[in-house]
Amino acid sequence: MKGIAKSLMVTLSTFTRKPVTRDYPNYHRPLPERDRAFPLLLWDKEVDEPFCTGCHACERACPVECMTVLMKDNPNHKSNGGDSSRRKIIDKFWIDYARCMRCNICVEVCNFDAIAMNNTWQGHETSVHDRKDLVMDLQQLLAQSHGGAIKEWVPTLGQANE
């Protein structure tokens, strides 16, 4: 009986505490900058083109093979009178968000810091009627970085910070 009374007291004390749950769609918890949602491509604001050169490194390293990369000659390259130093640039890029397992490997292998994991609340609502809608193309992958929404945190592998 004593124990039952004690249980009742615990729940009663919880009754007076503030609720810990949050009203999710109306309230978005601030995310840590390391947060890893799905991968996104980054936009080089200086020369106004994607960082990605279409080097296929991420495509080869992806464990679930959910990326498709096609490259092309950069029309904006210096030799063509442009102001970019990239000889090749990304032409088409697809990431199948339905298959991606958010392992961060593509970010780690990219030599151009051209891809990053999304650390904002945008792009989390992946409920769609057709799985094909989860295959993101280049425009969709670049949109957030282009709009300046994502906080940049490209992890430096193996570096101590203290």
Binding site: K18, P19, V20
Partner: peptide, 11 residues
């Protein structure tokens, strides 16, 4: 019950 469990309940 929600309050007993520190939840908000229907809202």
């Amino acid at each position: 019950l929600a309050r007993f469990q520190q939840r908000i309940g229907p809202q």
